[in-house]
Amino acid sequence: MKKQSINVKNKLGTSGKDSDKYFRPESKEELKKILEDYTDELTVIAGGTDLLVANYKNLYKIEKWLDLNWLDSFKEIKIFDDKVEIGSMVTHERLDKLDQIKEHFPVIQKAAADVGSPQIRSRGTIGGNIVTSSPAGDLLPTLLVYDAKLKIISKDGERIVDANDFFTGPKQNVLGDGELVEKIILPLEENKSKGAWVKVGKRKALVISSISLALNLVFDNDNKIKDARICVGSAAPVPLRIEKAEQSLKNKKIKKVNIAEIAQIVSDEISPIDDIRGTAEYRRKVAYNITKSALQEVINQ
């Protein structure tokens, strides 16, 4: 690379658009045109906090970049009467700091606050977290407990997929060539709900979860649990809803719930592996403990 002294006055250039290896569409129309022309060759970059790490020292091998950072419409958060739509390019930092997220989806806010570091949260996006599809992706369990749907677009059209059906394996999902996640659709619950988020890792910050748990309980007018959702991260090939435990929670008052029994179900239902972040045995024990603490947290709220 050419060295330049600090004092050299450079000629002002035009923009970053003039490369046939780097595309930065600023509208959906431009995006679709690029997808039509180059679908197979594109590497999509959102926040870059995973992509640039995975390709460290090999960035030059990437044939064609498709940078979603210039699509303002992908950064919008829209609030409707019955749902909230979060653009896939919304960063963790915004999810952490926005009052609307804290009010309606506190479990997402807490998980976003636990992601990486200020430097990672300022760049990393909810869409990137979803599409990377790591079993340890911190936002993924929280999306599943709020029954999120994903709007997927391509040059040919669009489709809606339940977040619960999106993940198919470690770093694998249902996206086909040239498909992108445009937004996340979260239904707004009429009834009162309470939730909890627990992340366990070897440090407090900048850590990949050894195991995580998101809990969301919806209560009816008699204060009975109308709907229960529990999802565990880093404990199976995909973020895993524990339906058996959810069923046992339904139609009960929270104070009548046998917490140890629910915790045992969660511990039994996950299918963890041994890896550098913990053994399967460790994860089963911790799953038991964090289920208890999450339920206790909701009781105390």
């Binding site: 923009s15 970053g16 490369s19 780097y22 930065r24 970059i45 926040g47 870059g48 906090t49 640039l52 790490v53 460290y56 020292k57 970049w65 940078d67 950072n69 930092e93 990486g116 570091s117 200020p118 430097q119 990672i120 300022s122 760049r123 900048l206």
Partner: peptide
């Protein structure tokens, strides 16, 4: 070089970023 140590931290558009995880083209 992987966004974990923070030695490359700069402020970009009033946000702290790890400059090893931002493409120069993204700073246009």
């Amino acid at each position: 070089g992987k966004g974990e140590c923070g030695a490359c931290t700069v402020i970009m558009n009033n946000k702290v970023v790890a400059s090893c995880l931002v493409l120069a083209a993204q700073a246009d």
